[in-house]
Amino acid sequence: MNLHAIRAIYLFEMARTRRTLVQSIVAPVLSTALYFVVFGAAIGGRISEVEGVPYGSFIVPGLIMLSLLTQSISNASFGIYFPRFTGTIYEVLSAPVSAAEIVIGYVGAAATKSIMLGLIILLTAAFIVPLRIDHPLVMLLFLVLTAVTFSLLGFIIGIWADGFEQLQLVPLLVVTPLTFLGGSFYSVDMLPPGWRTVALFNPVVYLVSGFRWSFFGIADVNPAISIGATLGFLAICLGLVAWIFRTGYRLKK
């Protein structure tokens, strides 16, 4: 294991975060705070509580997930796309590092950022609405699993993308809609029965539901199934990454 290399990549990426602190941390926190104002205050005025939880509190896990997903993807995809774009990727490709080490370095850094971000948003929320966390360890497990899984997805997108537009495409066209339809702002039970079935095909539903269960003990789907689904998605992403490195897809000519 080339630990020096993992460390080098990881620290390089974390230094990038520090340089772009405003963009990496402050902007998502700000936009999350805006969600609180709009959804929490405006809608919360009409829906006082969901399954015994005040609406403002109810949406916290979903909001954290929303940021976690989008930031994991954008951090990780940019982290690997940028060196491809500038050509500096030549050095990583010519270095004595394995695919696993490259992934640990890049995805590890992106996931770290997302987890930090998630915790900051959680802290921010705790100042605004009453919060309780019934299962803190499960909460952390979901936080880490989701950050890693979607950083991996971002990494894959960063390798697949052939331009900055494509880099934005997947988050814009796929992830954001799935997240909004994933029960961040409502319980799936509030949907008409037909839509409820459709919602169960949305992987984000499982994340949000499981994550929310760790806070309030209420869930749309069984938390065990949530964790299983997340692990399944993680496995798919790992498989894709392994395939990419075995074939050199988009990395080597």
């Binding site: 020096h4 460390r7 080098a8 390089f12 590092v97």
Partner: peptide, 10 residues
């Protein structure tokens, strides 16, 4: 320094 680390050197 990054390059040195990447190539596995202390």
């Amino acid at each position: 320094s990054f390059s040195r680390g990447l190539f596995g050197k202390r």
